[in-house]
């Protein structure tokens, strides 16, 4: 007599609540935000990708392309073409996003910023994906002592406000691109570890895994061949959301003056440098904020689509 559920939003939530509500050390807030993001907006039918997904993919593709091609694009060089006489100018035909406080073209700074911001976010999440994924897979597969210890470490790392952790790491290690990347990677490791672990735990109970083991497959082979492919969709959708979170985190760090040094162009730094001029030239802050918003939206949306398409529910139960 049950209504077919209106969406598939529940699985991740339950996946997380089940493990979190019962685990003794509470999990982090970012996982909760992931859960909130994944609370089912997209109803993926088998028909293929919804239009929105194509728009999101298009936006990300343009952004990534522009970031890669920034040096060869016909845009003013943000440093050498700066015109201090025309500082803090609103949008004009020549400079569609205006000029910043040092007379640098905001549009080109956003593109150059994409280079660094996207690099930081992707590199951080890929690192977190590999390390966290491996930890999660191992601790989900070996349920015994190894799993327990790794799970406890994850919990401890998760039991700390993420931004404060990143702030602490960057401020202690220094404000370089590498260190910010590392800080965000450290933050994302436990998140991916937890998701992977919860998912791997359920899959490792399945018959086909037992069957593979019975046929003499080794632990590593079983993990990589039997479990990983099933856990991957959940990991990927979380990773997409993770990139969005990392982009926001990078900007937040810059905004509080603890991100990458201001001479490196990142989205966060573009906004940071515009903050002093919000009275006269709010465009300096508005445009990069908009770009961040669209990017985060696109990534959230794609994460949702991915999860709905692969029906992550199954692996979560």
């Amino acid at each position: 007599m049950r209504d077919p559920l209106p969406d598939h939003g529940e699985e991740l939530i339950h996946l997380m609540h089940d493990s979190e509500a019962r685990s003794d050390v509470p999990a982090d807030s970012v996982t909760q935000q992931f859960a909130a993001v994944s609370a089912g907006t997209v109803k993926a039918k088998r028909k293929g990708l919804p239009l929105g997904a194509w728009i999101a993919i298009g936006w990300m593709a343009i952004l990534i392309l522009a970031a890669i091609l920034a040096p060869v694009l016909p845009i003013p060089d943000p440093i050498n073409d700066a015109n201090p006489l025309k500082a803090a100018q609103g949008p004009t035909l020549d400079h569609i996003f205006g000029l910043d406080g040092n007379g640098r073209d905001v549009f080109s700074r956003i593109i150059w910023g994409a280079r660094n911001s996207l690099f930081i976010a992707f590199a951080a999440v890929i690192t977190g994906f590999l390390i966290g994924g491996a930890l999660g897979l191992i601790s989900g597969y070996f349920k015994g002592r190894i799993g327990g210890v790794l799970g406890a470490i994850t919990d401890i790392l998760l039991a700390f406000p993420q931004l404060v952790l990143a702030l602490a790491v960057v401020s202690f290690l220094g404000r370089t691109v590498f260190n910010v990347t590392m800080a965000l990677a450290i933050v994302s490791i436990p998140i991916l570890a937890r998701i992977t672990r919860a998912s791997a735990l359920s899959w490792s109970e399945r018959d086909f895994v037992t069957a593979a083991r019975a046929q003499g497959a080794g632990h590593i082979r079983t993990m990589l061949r039997e479990i990983l492919p099933n856990v991957l969709p959940a990991m990927l959708s979380i990773a997409l959301l993770g990139i969005a979170v990392a982009i926001v985190a990078e900007a937040s760090l810059s905004l509080v003056g603890a991100g990458v040094k201001p001479d490196v162009t990142t989205w966060g730094n573009v906004i940071f440098s515009g903050q002093a001029y919000i009275r006269d030239a709010p465009s300096m802050v508005l445009f990069p904020s908009m770009v961040i918003f669209f990017t985060v939206y696109a990534l959230n949306y794609l994460g949702d689509v991915l999860r709905a398409t692969f029906d992550v529910r199954e692996s979560a139960l």
Partner: peptide, 24 residues
């Protein structure tokens, strides 16, 4: 009950948000 747990876990995000907002 779940909301309550989430609200607790969310304190982490709240602290991060407070740092940013206080600075702005």
């Amino acid at each position: 009950l779940t909301l309550l747990t989430v609200a607790g876990l969310n304190v982490g995000a709240l602290i991060g948000g407070a740092i940013v907002v206080e600075n702005v």
